[in-house]
Design a binder for these strands. Structure first.
Lengths: 101, 101
DNA sequence: TAGATACGCAACCGGGAGGTTGCACATGGC
DNA sequence: GCCATGTGCAACCTCCCGGTTGCGTATCTA
């Protein structure tokens, strides 16, 4: 999942979906420097990581993509836990150094 | 930076440095399935992303690596902001739908 | 001093990720 | 019915990433 967010293009896609709400593939590809199929592939990767979902297809032939915010929360929590463990490890090291001169 | 965390091996390295405190390259490579140089490359990538720092070299020829927790906080905050923007976007959409029947 | 250990640098290699092109299919507006 | 539009599938290409190997250099220990 971090791998999915790791690509510059995909991170931009996530940010754009967040700012503008659900959008279709063609809409997302419009104005981009790369082809529509490339965008579609990136969206597939994001969907595979559970970061994005196909919303109920728009009015006609459109199929919109929308964010799955729960996955973002999971990632955030993972980083939090890592930070906390680091603090604990440093504390243990400090104590060990103090006790054994 | 998400790209740095995106690799399985690198994420494991970060987790291990968090759990056990500062470690040398050779120590991190010990027991791993891949060569020491591969580990060293991954550590370089992590250092390039600012996620890891060379601690004050150990007792002798050792040079330990340690976590830079501020970068982890940055990443966490970025995800938070994205989630928040998503909520706002949905709220705007809801209002727009309600006002225009 | 000799040997083991920890490290760095550089060249090399294979596979997959990111991208394009081409085509087929459905749907909506005229 | 006809054309524009939104989408999906598949083949193909290029380049970079992850990994290995080989060698040279410090530093600790016997």
């Amino acid at each position: 999942m971090f791998a999915a967010l790791g690509d510059e293009t995909r991170l931009a896609l996530v940010a754009r979906l967040c700012a503008a709400g659900p959008l279709s593939t063609a809409r997302l590809a419009q104005g981009a420097a790369i082809s529509r199929q490339a965008i579609a592939k990136h969206l597939d990767v994001l969907a595979g990581a559970g970061l994005v979902r196909r919303g109920a297809g728009g009015p006609g032939r459109e199929r919109r993509w929308e964010i799955e915010p729960r996955r973002l929360d999971e990632a955030r929590r993972a980083l939090e836990q890592i930070s906390r463990r680091w603090d604990e490890a440093l504390e243990r090291l400090r104590k060990a150094v103090e006790e054994e001169p």
